[in-house]
């Protein structure tokens, strides 16, 4: 009994449809990986938080805050401002980075780190200021000033982004299961990656009589994924997030720009790699087909 073979051309349509799906799953894998990196990468966020210009801006804002308190209470602001060192601010930045990346990595909702300024001794050494104080209210006043300086440092050092995250978490606590949501997010690149492998395998199987065509489809899907990544980047830029953030906080805009610059370069690199890899695969398929012809 003779076997009835499907003509090779009949598989083109389902293979092309699978190739469209493959493009989407590859894009999903890339998005998931970059999304996770953006939320949970400690090294990336430390690099952004500890950027020299970002810390300079924080120190400037802290100095302005202490000067304002000095004008309000009558103490000499310079020695107090010098008590809040760059190293302390950078250490706080590291703690905050670890806090909010850990938040998304583990899903455990904890409050942002606090900062305690230790300036009472410096204030007591300011004799002109101490003489002007009500003797009964000395300890109370010193503690109030210390708390307000701590809060100033916390607000300027724990940058707006982190306050936004903290505020957002306060609102969703109880209505969103963050550990579960994060677990789902972590699965996205894995599921999309496995789906991509499955789809590529199916395409290869369907076009097994003309493996070069499978290469064309898979290579095309890879390059298509690169194009989609570039389109995603363009769409993100058109949202003008930087402008909106800049209206609210100059310091956060500086941090955001730095983060956006790093991630944009990485996305462009990944898109370029996908385009080149896809192109090479298609070129191989074309060459092999020419040889076979």
């Amino acid at each position: 009994m003779s076997k009835v073979k499907m003509p090779a051309g009949a598989w083109h349509i389902p293979a092309a449809l699978l190739a469209v799906l493959l493009t989407v799953t590859l894009w999903g894998t890339q998005l998931g990986l970059f999304g996770l990196r953006g939320l949970t990468s400690v090294s990336l966020h430390e690099r952004v938080s500890l950027d020299r210009s970002a810390v300079d801006l924080q120190m400037k804002r802290i100095r302005e805050g202490v000067d304002a308190l000095g004008a309000e209470y009558g103490f000499s602001a310079e020695p107090v401002a010098e008590a809040v060192t760059r190293e302390q601010v950078e250490a706080l930045d590291r703690q905050v980075t670890a806090w909010w990346t850990g938040l998304f990595a583990t899903g455990e909702m904890t409050d942002a780190p606090v900062f305690t300024a230790d300036v009472q001794e410096i204030l007591r050494a300011d004799t002109a200021f101490m003489e002007g104080l009500n003797p009964l209210m000395v300890n109370n006043t010193l503690e109030t000033i210390e708390n307000r300086i701590s809060e100033t440092v916390r607000k300027t050092a724990v940058l707006f982004r982190d306050q936004l995250v903290n505020a957002g978490l306060q609102r969703v606590r109880g209505s969103v299961n963050l550990p579960q949501a994060m677990e789902l997010l972590r699965q996205v690149p894995l599921v999309c990656g496995l789906a991509s492998l499955l789809l590529a395998g199916l395409i290869a199987l369907m076009m097994s009589r003309k493996i070069q065509t499978a290469g064309q489809y898979i290579g095309g899907a890879l390059s298509g994924c690169g194009l989609l990544m570039l389109l995603t980047l363009i769409l993100m830029k058109t949202m003008n997030l930087r402008g909106m953030i800049g209206e609210a906080s100059q310091a956060l805009e500086a941090q955001y720009s730095h983060l956006a610059r790093i991630l944009s370069l990485e996305v462009m690199g990944a898109a370029a790699a996908a385009l080149i890899l896809g192109g090479l695969l298609m070129a191989w398929a074309a060459r092999t087909r020419r040889r076979a012809a």
């Binding site: 493009t23 489809y217 290579g219 095309g220 994924c225 194009l227 989609l228 769409l235 896809g278």
Partner: peptide, 27 residues
């Protein structure tokens, strides 16, 4: 000989087109 050059450029564009259209619509 079938020219492969245009297909090497067209194939990725055609494969990405449905998702790109969806993204553009959503945007």
């Amino acid at each position: 000989k079938r020219k492969q050059g245009p297909w090497m450029i067209l194939t990725p564009i055609l494969l990405a087109l449905p998702m790109a259209a969806a993204l553009a619509f959503a945007a």
